[in-house]
Nucleic acid binder design. Structure first.
Lengths: 149, 149
DNA sequence: TTACAACTTCAAGTCGACTTGAGGTCAAGG
DNA sequence: CCTTGACCTCAAGTCGACTTGAAGTTGTAA
């Protein structure tokens, strides 16, 4: 299939697909004239990329998980490490979610003053944060999730 | 305390703190000469910002949760919506984590070929929707953004 | 055969979240 | 009094992930 079809079926923009290819996350099987042709299984790869991106992973991170070249590279340790890192992120998000759920229900006008909120967020133990720089985890362009929601 | 002290205690760079202030996420209580002075409770706010950032939230998103101005704005619906959005992100991350954990243990050289991996990632559903010769629809505009998954 | 929509490349622009650098101010200590 | 260094402002730079635009090519339907 050509890039337009892949775009339609995957939901990713053609420019994004070219970008992924340039980065080595997907591969075209050849050209028809000058047009890229893709095998159907690329759809799965793009789905994976999209999922990863929407979960906040960088393309580099996703690339490390993808065995796209077909060749080897299945670094199990890396995979396990990534899983752990994601687990960590899940814990942080869970913390925030709980804090938010409470804040949405709480009567205190300023939730930073609410002891329950503070406990949920672990703000009493702020000494722990010393390790400046929370991993350079850059986020996907917020686009969708910003408004309305 | 001045910005250097806040930076030291919070782990955030002074430039980041100025940036947060400019964005309205924190406030200085005044100046000593030309130097910003901060109240201790700003530490909590910065801790919250740091936590949110490391979980992948944008500053705007975090700002909406923060009642920093002291004044009202506790939009419970917004808070609940944010909690839901975060829940969604947690689910995606959980999916990925499970996929990764399996891939790290699996023998298949290409996990996209592994049925268990595919099931974990929910990639099987893709198959169904394919090529039914879609009507010639053009879509070269900003594509409305799939925002994926 | 021709029109044209869909593709191509490449360069530059955008956005969020900061960082870096230049040039300037000022409070405190020697 | 003078130095120092932590602060100040403002502009510009950086990075990731794309998007946009210009200019050119081509498969295919009419």
């Amino acid at each position: 299939m050509d890039i337009g079809e892949l775009a339609r079926q995957s939901g990713a923009a053609p420019s994004a697909l070219r970008f992924y290819e340039e980065k080595g996350l997907i591969r075209s099987s050849g050209r028809h004239g000058l047009r890229r042709q893709y095998e159907p299984e690329v759809l799965d790869q793009v789905a994976l990329i999209t999922l990863g991106r929407s979960a906040g992973l960088t393309l580099d991170e996703i690339g490390q998980m993808l065995t796209v070249g077909g060749r080897a590279k299945v670094d199990r340790q890396l995979l396990a490490d990534r899983a752990d890192a994601i687990d960590d992120q899940i814990r942080k998000l869970t913390t925030i979610r709980e804090g938010l759920r409470h804040a949405a229900a709480c009567q205190a006008p300023d939730h930073l003053a609410c002891p329950k909120f503070r406990r949920l967020m672990g703000l009493a133990v702020r000494k722990a944060i010393v390790t400046a720089r929370p991993s350079p985890r850059r986020q996907l362009r917020p686009s969708g999730r910003g408004s309305g929601a």
